[in-house]
Amino acid sequence: MKHSLPQATDGTLLPNTVAADAPKVPAFDDNELIRTAAKVTRDLNAVRPMIYWTDLLASAVIGYGAMIAAIMIESTGLAILAGIISVLALYRAGSFIHELTHIRRGSMPGFHFTWNALIGVPLLLPSFMYEGVHNLHHMRKRYGTVEDPEYLPLALMKPYTVPLFVLVSALAPIGLFIRYALLAPLSMVIPPLRKLVVERYSGLVINPEFRRRSPEGEFKRQWYAQEIAASIWAIVLLTAVATGFLPMKAFLIAVAIAAGSVVLNQIRTLVAHLWENDGEVMSVTEQYLDSVNVPPPGLLPALWAPVGLRYHALHHLLPGVPYHALGEAHRRIAEALPKGSTYYRANHTSLFGLVAGLVRGSAGQASSTQSGTTS
């Protein structure tokens, strides 16, 4: 594991730390950080529905409006600009799927349904693909282990893994059409295929070893309703293209915009963590340090890490704080803790620096592995 907690200049361990060569058990937590973060943000846990609704609806209107403009505008330059705006807006709207997994059901009546109707089903990414999966990533003893569906030790893998991780996401729209237009209907009458679809193709995961369990209870009803809606939508779209009702140009532009949003999210995922854990159980503080904050004054993270995702490390520390309160939570914690404390060690400055660090880390790991093999 790469993250040991602070040491004194003579190498002795400070309180609540472990040596780098200690047995593979969770390190002691920085209890001051955990207590302070909980104390100063106690009043920030309530969601503000007006912010959620306004943000989602505005993002959806801008996203789809810009998509229509990209399809209809004759000027190539203006069409590309409209496409970029559409990618950013729909990416922001799509990012609310993360909030759906954390807000309590009933706190905003109709929000889950509206998000799926506006974003989830049209983009073939209904919320059941994330709900019931993402919460496993936050489980204390699952994070960073082989049981975490959203974790890969990318910093410890081959250098080509990093660009491949991003490039493969561009094919997501094709995979989603196959999943919903073909596999979903067939799986309803072929039980072995259904098992495969549920286990392997029903979750937004990056861990290839993860296998999803079949849904139960009320969630099963929600899953099936969303899946049927997405399946019908995929079949209707493909039929419209095949019959000429939907022009191929319009379809390809829409697919390119959807792919752009997925690629942007994959790049954001690439730097959401440092990906340095080798599969062992981590303490809360270690999980925090393996995650990334990109706080102000930088402005670009508001575009590539929207809806509070620029405070991803803080979110792992306080998963109950809604996205609109994370900025205030960061300010309060930073004011309450001294410079140089553990809290500041998860703060980073830019996307490019994080990607470069990940590439260097994987290249260094590959080099050391090769040296060890040949020695």
Score class of each variant (00 low, 15 high):
residue 7 Q to W: 14
residue 7 Q to F: 14
residue 13 L to F: 06
residue 15 P to Y: 04
residue 22 A to S: 00
residue 24 K to H: 12
residue 26 P to D: 01
residue 27 A to M: 09
residue 28 F to Q: 09
residue 30 D to L: 02
residue 30 D to P: 11
residue 31 N to S: 13
residue 35 R to I: 00
residue 41 T to F: 07
residue 44 L to P: 01
residue 47 V to I: 12
residue 56 L to Y: 11
residue 57 L to P: 04
residue 60 A to C: 10
residue 76 T to S: 15
residue 78 L to K: 03
residue 85 I to E: 13
residue 96 F to Y: 09
residue 120 G to W: 03
residue 121 V to R: 09
residue 127 S to Q: 00
residue 128 F to H: 14
residue 148 D to P: 10
residue 150 E to M: 08
residue 156 L to D: 13
residue 161 T to W: 10
residue 163 P to G: 09
residue 167 L to A: 13
residue 168 V to F: 15
residue 171 L to G: 08
residue 173 P to Y: 05
residue 174 I to L: 15
residue 179 R to S: 06
residue 182 L to Y: 06
residue 182 L to M: 11
residue 197 V to N: 14
residue 202 S to P: 00
residue 205 V to D: 09
residue 205 V to W: 03
residue 212 R to M: 07
residue 213 R to F: 11
residue 224 Y to D: 10
residue 229 A to H: 03
residue 230 A to C: 03
residue 231 S to T: 04
residue 234 A to Q: 03
residue 235 I to D: 01
residue 239 T to C: 13
residue 240 A to W: 07
residue 244 G to D: 01
residue 248 M to H: 10
residue 252 L to K: 09
residue 263 V to G: 11
residue 264 L to Y: 09
residue 270 L to V: 08
residue 277 N to W: 15
residue 287 Q to V: 08
residue 295 P to M: 05
residue 298 G to C: 14
residue 298 G to Y: 14
residue 303 L to C: 13
residue 316 H to A: 05
residue 319 P to W: 06
residue 320 G to A: 00
residue 321 V to S: 10
residue 323 Y to E: 08
residue 323 Y to D: 04
residue 330 H to P: 02
residue 331 R to C: 07
residue 332 R to T: 01
residue 341 S to Y: 02
residue 346 A to E: 08
residue 346 A to V: 07
residue 351 L to W: 01
residue 352 F to R: 15
residue 371 S to L: 13
